[in-house]
Amino acid sequence: MKYEYWFASIRGLSHQKKRRLRDAAGSGEAIYYIEESLLKKQEYLTENDRKTIGFCQKNSKVGEEYERFLEKNIKFIPYFDPAYPQRMKDLNDQPYALFVRGNLPKEDRVSAAIVGARQCSAYGERQAIAFAELLAGAGVQIISGMARGIDGAAGRGAINAGGCTYAVLGSGVDVCYPRENRGLYVDIQKSGGILSEQLPGSPPLQGNFPRRNRIISALSELVLVMEAREKSGSLITADFALEQGKEVYALPGPVTSPLSRGCNALIRQGAGILISAEDFVEEMKTMGYLRKNFAKKSDKNKKMLESTENILYSCLDLFPKGVHQLIEETGLEPFQVMETLVALELKGYIQEISKNYYIRSE
């Protein structure tokens, strides 16, 4: 496999050309030792392509590079590997190979992408968590880009529900971006996987992100856009999804909000409307995507929260309440309220939207 990794790691050669050459040669090892005269017979290769391959033949330490790769605990899955996702077989500009930490999405389970604005509102973040929790609790695999804002919230919601979530990065799978999502990056690998077409060690270059969106949509049957500006990466994902024949849904928002203009435009163009997570799960059942029962978050909270947490949680809703008001309503000591608020926030049940003011996250 070291020669396969060597060929996949050649920069400057398109995915399509790599596949054609590998199909013609039969293996990465054959390409490593291929003679220039045989390369010239591959008419789709330019002179520059042949020079690139020749340079990599002469200046590559195949064994050392592959050993360093293995040390990073990364799976290498080229397009001809049986493990390569079937959902991506017909993708335009199909990646030559995927690099994975953790696992790939299961082929026999429904996947839904949840994407949206990095600088999202509290409303968008709450909805992303709520939809991800109920969908993941119903057995749906959640796909995202692990970006700030909506993507990160969706990943965390899926994990809160004990479900599976997968992130497609615009960097190498060994590069956590953004850095503040380090905890999420680690947790995703326990319940799903981190994927990328970029070589290990690749930095998060701006041009990588629009391209990775085609993979997010390809891995999903459904794409949910929670918040998006008029021109955003989320709309690029929606465009890819429509090209691939996938279902696209959008969360409506205030007409005055820049963060909702992209979603409202999608709805005007015919995208499905996301009214509530519960209604959407029921709609998915009707459409035949789901056949198993799911537990609502409120039931889950009742079973999992400690008594003090339950008391405080029951006093909160979607309208902000301050610490002093919560102390009065619960009758708890100030230190108990502060400790419990921290515990609930860490578990993802509540959110501090301004200094010492909290709301439920559902």
Rank of each mutant, 00 (worst) to 15 (best):
V173F: 03
V173D: 00
V175F: 11
C176K: 13
C176I: 01
C176T: 12
Y177D: 08
Y177F: 14
P178W: 01
P178M: 07
R179I: 07
R179H: 10
N181Q: 04
G183A: 04
G183N: 14
L184E: 12
Y185I: 04
Y185K: 08
V186L: 11
I188D: 05
I188W: 07
Q189A: 06
K190W: 00
K190E: 09
S191R: 10
S191H: 15
G192C: 01
G193E: 01
I194H: 01
I194N: 00
S196T: 04
Q198S: 08
L199Q: 01
L199K: 10
P200Q: 06
P200M: 09
P200V: 03
G201W: 02
S202I: 01
G207C: 06
G207L: 00
N208Y: 11
F209S: 09
P210T: 06
P210S: 10
N213Y: 02
N213F: 01
N213T: 07
R214I: 00
R214E: 12
I216K: 12
I216Q: 10
I216L: 07
A218G: 13
A218K: 13
A218M: 11
S220Y: 01
S220H: 02
E221N: 11
E221P: 10
L222H: 11
L222E: 05
L224Y: 05
M226C: 02
E227V: 11
E227P: 12
S232H: 13
G233H: 03
S234P: 11
I236F: 08
T237K: 10
A238E: 00
A238S: 07
D239Y: 00
F240Y: 15
L242H: 04
E243P: 00
K246T: 00
K246F: 03
V248E: 06
V248Q: 06
A250P: 03
L251A: 00
L251Y: 02
P252G: 09
G253P: 07
P254K: 04
V255D: 03
T256E: 04
S257A: 14
S257H: 08
L259G: 09
S260E: 03
R261V: 02
R261G: 09
G262M: 10
C263N: 14
C263T: 11
N264T: 01
N264C: 01
A265Y: 11
A265C: 03
A265H: 14
A265M: 13
I267E: 08
Q269L: 09
Q269H: 14
Q269E: 11
A271N: 11
G272V: 13
L274H: 08
I275F: 06
S276K: 12
A277E: 03
E278M: 07
E278F: 13
E278P: 07
D279R: 14
D279A: 14
D279M: 14
F280D: 03
E282I: 13
E283P: 00
M284N: 02
M284K: 08
M284E: 00
K285D: 01
T286Y: 15
G288M: 11
Y289V: 07
R291D: 09
N293H: 13
N293A: 09
N293F: 15
F294L: 10
A295V: 01
A295M: 09
D299V: 10
D299T: 11
D299R: 14
D299F: 10
D299W: 06
K300F: 08
K300D: 02
K300A: 07
N301V: 15
K302I: 05
